[in-house]
């Protein structure tokens, strides 16, 4: 760099060099992350018509979303579904992941193969996974119902995505299938860090497999649990692509798969049938979801960190 600035004193050259290194990243970050997020907070306080701000609205957008039916009804309905998604994924997806990781950590034959196959869906687009399972869950010709018929359980066959009682649950199971490899490998990495001697001495002392899992492994993988809980939480409250592909923008049937992501998108950008879009209410909704995710995550990180033990 001396060649570019031959006459500059070294005292000035160094700060300039550092500024040069930082500038492109800071510009990108401020322009396309910081500014948009701060703008969302501002936009939420305005009344909008299409793409134009037409006046200050105070807390009106927030009031509509939180207290004025039908908007508030949709908000709470969607929020409740996000909550179900989060809790179910914690149990179904991450619970499975923990035990899969424990079995993988034994280093049995084929364990490498099992890891690679578990992680395969994780690298694929939600669009692919969503369409694939939408075909599999087709009531007449889908693989799931065909399998049930083939093994003599024809009476269990149902229109999985077409009835409110099973639609959301089906989406949750597909999501778990798609992502289970991720928490599994996070847990596996944490389990492989547990010193062998601890587990071996516990075994010599007569601790059975289950006791070792509960008393040694579970507490020692607490940092992994923190990460898994937080990522699942953020993912659940940002859920959009899977319900969009598999059910649709309105969260059918009868809003039984409606979640905040779909509701936000509908509010902000309208739907094919009703092109009504409202950037004000959309921004207010985004701000509320954003603050909710941020506050709960920060609070949980504090709580969960407390149970972590450094090895």
């Amino acid at each position: 760099m001396g060649a570019f600035m031959p006459n500059m004193s070294p005292r000035l050259r160094r700060p300039l060099w550092i500024a040069l290194l930082l500038t492109p990243a800071l510009l990108l970050m401020i322009g396309f992350v910081t500014l948009p997020i701060l703008s969302a907070f501002v936009y939420a306080f305005y009344k909008w018509q299409g793409l134009a701000r037409i006046g200050f609205a105070g807390f009106e957008n927030f009031r509509l979303i939180l207290f004025q039916p039908p908007f508030s009804t949709w908000t709470y309905n969607a929020f409740f579904h996000n909550l179900i998604v989060f809790v179910s994924l914690m149990v179904v997806q991450n619970g499975t992941a923990f035990f899969l990781a424990w079995m993988l950590s034994k280093g049995l034959r084929l364990h490498r193969f099992h890891q690679v196959s578990l992680f395969l869906p994780v690298i694929l687009s939600t669009v692919i996974i969503g369409f694939l399972w939408k075909l599999f869950l087709n009531p007449l010709f889908g693989l799931v119902n065909q399998t049930l018929v083939a093994i003599g359980l024809a009476s269990w066959a149902q229109p999985w995505l077409g009835q409110p009682s099973t639609a959301l649950a089906s989406l949750i199971v597909v999501n778990a299938w798609h992502w289970v490899g991720f928490p599994t490998l996070v847990y596996l990495a944490a389990m492989q860090r547990i010193p062998r001697e601890i587990l071996e001495s516990a075994e010599i002392d007569g601790a059975g497999e289950w006791t070792r899992i509960r008393r040694i492994v579970w507490p020692l993988v607490a940092p992994a649990t923190t990460i898994v809980v937080i990522l699942t939480f953020i993912g659940s409250f940002n859920w959009f692509e899977l319900p969009y592909i598999m059910s649709g923008l309105e969260g059918p049937p009868f809003h039984s798969t409606d979640v905040l992501g779909l509701y936000f998108y509908r509010t902000a950008f309208g739907t094919v049938s009703a092109a009504l879009q409202d950037f004000g209410r959309g921004s207010a909704l985004a701000v509320l979801i954003f603050l909710f995710i941020l506050c709960i995550s920060a609070w949980w990180v504090r709580i969960l960190r407390r149970r972590e033990i450094d090895l």
Binding site: L22, A25, L26, M29, G31, F32, V33, L35, P36, I37, S39, A40, Y43, L51, I234, N238, F240, G261, F264, A268, F279, G282, S283, A286, V287, I289, F290, I293, L294, S297
Partner: peptide, 23 residues
């Protein structure tokens, strides 16, 4: 500056899509 970048790790940028669209 390091913390400024790190804060971006927790931000779901999807929620800023309206301002991004306008920008």
């Amino acid at each position: 500056i390091y913390l400024f970048f790190l804060a971006g790790l927790m931000v779901p940028l999807k929620l800023a899509v309206i301002p991004l669209f306008i920008e």
